[in-house]
Every structure is written in structure tokens, then in C-alpha cells.
Amino acid sequence: MDVLVELFLTFLMIGFVSFGGGYAMIPVIEIEVSNHGWMTTQEFTDVIAIAGMSPGPIATNSAIFVGYKTAELPGAIVSALAMVIPSLLIILIIATFFFRFNENKFVKSAFYGLRPIITGLIVYAAIKFAITNNVIGELSWHTASLMIIFGLSLFSLIKLRLHPLFVIALSGFVGMVLY
């Protein structure tokens, strides 16, 4: 299959299930990207870093990067469009029928199950990325140093409420000095 068609169909499917904010889509995009052989999990971690440093939604940004790396500018365009077309269609349907979507009883009970599942999905992504990037692994100075960077980053995000962009930049600087 043409790689552009493959990119389009992959991100179209992801676009339809993009519930619960960008981070929930990270494991979904990661699995598709490695199944298609577009990138390794570690390369995809770098995509999240770039997507997180760019303005705008993280899932769409990741799709654009994956598309660009796989098939240059046409790939980026196709992936971005595929991510937003499902939203456009669903919004047009809801807006046309003036359907109070978020107050519907079925929608509410669907979200009762969906929200914890999305939490579980993101926790899974965290474990998987931690293993791939040696934050969890055989005990060595290298793993220990990465665990410390992980711990300090998390502390800066949750307790110190530092901006993610700032934490990523700081961490990059520490990496240059250490490794």
C-alpha cells in the first residue's frame, strides 16, 4: 500500500478514538508506528519531546512529526488532516442536530467507563516508555541516574508546577553535562 494511504488510514482511525486529551493517544500512536515499522519506541519518545515542546495539541503534533519523518511534507499534511477529519465530522453532526451531546445520559455513562480506562491507558504508556528508555531496568549507575532525573522531573511538574517546556529544556541541559 502507498505509505501516504497507510498514514492517512492509521491516523484517521486514531482520530476517531482520540478521547480524553493528547496523552491518552500516545500508546495508540506508538503501537501503530512500531507495527508499521515507521519508528522504534525510543525514536517515538523523542517525537513526544518535540511535540511537547511545540505549541498546540500533543497528539496532533506527534502525528505531524511521524508523518513528516515517514513521508516528508506530504506525509505531515496527510497525517494532520487524518487526525482532524473525524473531529470535524462528529462536530458537524452534533452541531447540525443541536444535540446536547455532553448532557446525554448514554454519553455520560460511556464516559464513566472511558475516563478510568484512559487513566489506565496512560499509566500503561508510562510503564512501557520507562522500560524502553531505561528508567526501569537492571540496576546500574545509568539506570539510577535516569530514575533520579525522572523523579526530579515529576517533582518539578507536580509540586513546583514548573512549565513542561522548562522542565524538558532543563533536563536536556543536565543530559549534556552528564552523558
Partner: peptide, 18 residues
């Protein structure tokens, strides 16, 4: 080298999102 550390921070960012 920068990205070796940044990857650990990205894991933290995902945990933060969770």
C-alpha cells in the same frame, strides 16, 4: 546526550498526565 535525559523527563510528563 541531552535526549538521554529528556526521555526520562518525558516518562515523568506521561506519569504527570496520568
Amino acid at each position: 546526550s541531552a535526549f538521554i535525559a529528556i526521555r526520562a523527563t518525558i516518562v515523568a510528563l506521561i506519569v504527570y498526565a496520568a
